[in-house]
């Protein structure tokens, strides 16, 4: 065997163990999801049979699916811009010369390393009607409290606030890393040209931070679809599915209602969303942003 031939075998052998696991738990289940979504539910008396796109037709007629999809959209729109905007502000502050910035960085970053379940336990108390911290603070100003998590009008915003709190510090880190890579001469040059702080931010910093923003954006979108831990503690999707998200609805269908084909159909929708996200990222990457 020639040495290059041997190298080829070596390459594949090195890759093999990881490849087996990746195929078994990423590629195989992805394909299996699509297959399962075209079969009916198997019961004790009737085995599963091929039903084509019937499950998808059922999905389109399912008002809960639409509610959950809209919820997820609101959740994404509520969490993504707010957490990214806050992350940028935090990074600018921590990167500047403010007093006590070591403490500031620590405070902003701490939610990141706490498990969502633990965090939800604490926030559950904040949102408790009457005795909860938020209602107590409102009471100080003579304002009435309310059932934050029990009211379909306030439940989603309440979850959004908590999620922004959880995520902003994590995204701050990436902005901080990018800011530290920007040479200080740039700022001096801009100031010499007579640019004010906001002009410098808008014309110099933001364009330079574009790759970071895209990276954070993709992560934030992904999080808005995969992060449902808090629902198990805070609302269980209620009241009346007002706070349920797509992945939580998948969980319910698979493990509470034991409807695997429908859960697979919902998963296929989620996979389609992620595929669109990946394609979008690829296109924007190609066009506008220069990665180092």
């Amino acid at each position: 065997m020639t040495s290059s031939r041997l190298n080829q075998v070596y390459g594949w052998l090195l890759l093999l163990p990881a490849a087996v696991l990746l195929v078994a738990f990423t590629h195989y289940p992805t394909i299996r999801t699509l297959v399962d979504s075209t079969f009916s539910k198997s019961t004790a008396t009737r085995p599963a049979r091929f039903v084509g796109l019937d499950n998808y037709a059922m999905l389109l007629d399912d008002p809960v699916f639409w509610q959950v999809a809209v919820n997820n959209l609101i959740f994404a729109l509520g969490t993504i811009p707010a957490s990214i905007g806050l992350a940028l502000v935090m990074a600018l502050w921590v990167n500047g010369k403010l007093a006590g910035r070591g403490f500031l960085r620590l405070a902003y970053f701490t939610p990141t390393i706490l498990p969502m379940v633990a965090v939800a336990n604490i926030w559950l108390f904040f949102y408790t009607p009457g005795i909860g911290l938020i209602d107590q603070v409102l009471g100080l100003f003579g304002l009435p409290g309310r059932n934050w998590l029990g009211d379909s009008a306030t439940v989603l915003p309440s979850l959004i606030v908590m999620t922004v709190w959880k995520e902003a510090g994590f995204f701050m880190i990436f902005y901080l890393a990018a800011l530290q890579a920007i040479p200080p001469e740039l700022k001096e040059a801009a100031m010499l040209e007579g640019a004010g702080r906001f002009t410098y931010l808008r014309r110099v910093l933001l364009p330079l931070l574009m790759p970071t923003t895209l990276f954070v954006l993709v992560n934030a979108v992904l999080n808005s679809f995969k992060l449902v831990d808090h629902l198990f503690i805070l609302t269980k999707g209620g009241p009346n599915n007002a706070s349920s998200l797509l992945l939580y609805y998948i969980y319910e269908n698979a493990f509470s209602f034991f409807d695997t084909p429908y859960a697979a159909t919902l998963t296929a929708v989620l996979l389609a969303v992620l595929a669109l996200l990946a394609a979008g990222q690829f296109l924007i990457l190609d066009k506008r942003v220069h990665y180092r």
Binding site: F25, T26, Y28, P29, T30, R32, T33, D36, L222, F225, K226, L247, I250, Y251, A254, T260, A263, A264, T267, L270, L271, L274
Partner: peptide, 9 residues
């Protein structure tokens, strides 16, 4: 496609 998405399969 993180493992969380594929819980069913």
């Amino acid at each position: 496609i993180v493992p969380e998405i594929l819980i069913v399969e």
